[in-house]
């Protein structure tokens, strides 16, 4: 079966509609937070301060909303534990070359306007106006529905790779958006 949007079941669509109601989403978030299906690190929350003025800082965007380039392989929607792989998105791509593969939320708004979830246009504009220093050369799309063995891969492989790339690119700020 294809990964295209037609493959989303009616049940999944209905569920996505329900979770689009803020109160339902918060109820789900509470249940999920109390479950053992996600990782709650016990070590202290890390903290780094901005080392230079905002107007000199390079900004990278990271989203777990399933954003990728049209030419890149879509995220794997057949594995119930999700897909912990990474899509690198160059900072100079037009929004029209981006798309979303993610069956676990209703992304019709982001399909119409990518800035709802992946605000490349806004940060490009802020960089041009000198409010931030620059847009990073590489940004990242992931798929947020990650559980089980894939959660280990996310923590041990994908997330460190993102951090290393951002450091190599001299990025000063990471801006993250969920699905």
């Amino acid at each position: 079966m294809d990964n295209d949007r037609e493959s989303i079941s009616l049940f999944q669509r209905l569920q996505n509609r329900l979770y689009a109601i803020p109160a339902v989403a918060q109820w789900w978030a509470g249940r999920f937070a109390r479950s053992t299906r996600h990782s709650s690190p016990t070590d202290p929350v890390p903290f780094s301060r901005l080392a230079k003025p905002l107007a000199e800082s390079s900004v990278a965007i990271i989203t777990t909303g399933g954003v990728h380039l049209q030419g890149q392989p879509p995220f794997d929607m057949r594995d119930p534990d999700g897909d912990a792989s990474l899509r690198t998105i160059p900072g100079d791509v037009p929004a029209s070359e981006l798309m979303i593969t993610h069956d676990y939320y209703n992304h019709t708004s982001a399909d119409r306007d990518m800035n709802v979830i992946f605000p490349l246009d806004h940060f490009r504009d802020l960089a041009q106006r000198g409010i931030v220093g620059s847009l990073a050369p590489r940004h990242f799309g992931l798929m947020g529905h990650i559980e089980g063995a894939h959660l280990v891969r996310l923590q041990e492989e994908t997330a460190p790779k993102i951090a290393a790339t951002l450091r190599a690119d001299g990025v000063d700020i990471a801006f993250l958006t969920p699905a």
């Binding site: 990271i62 994908t158 997330a159 993102i162 450091r167 990471a174 993250l176």
Partner: peptide, 12 residues
């Protein structure tokens, strides 16, 4: 988790 990893690498 990604934010924590990036922050731990020194990037706010």
């Amino acid at each position: 988790l990604i934010a924590r990893e990036v922050e731990a690498a020194g990037i706010p």
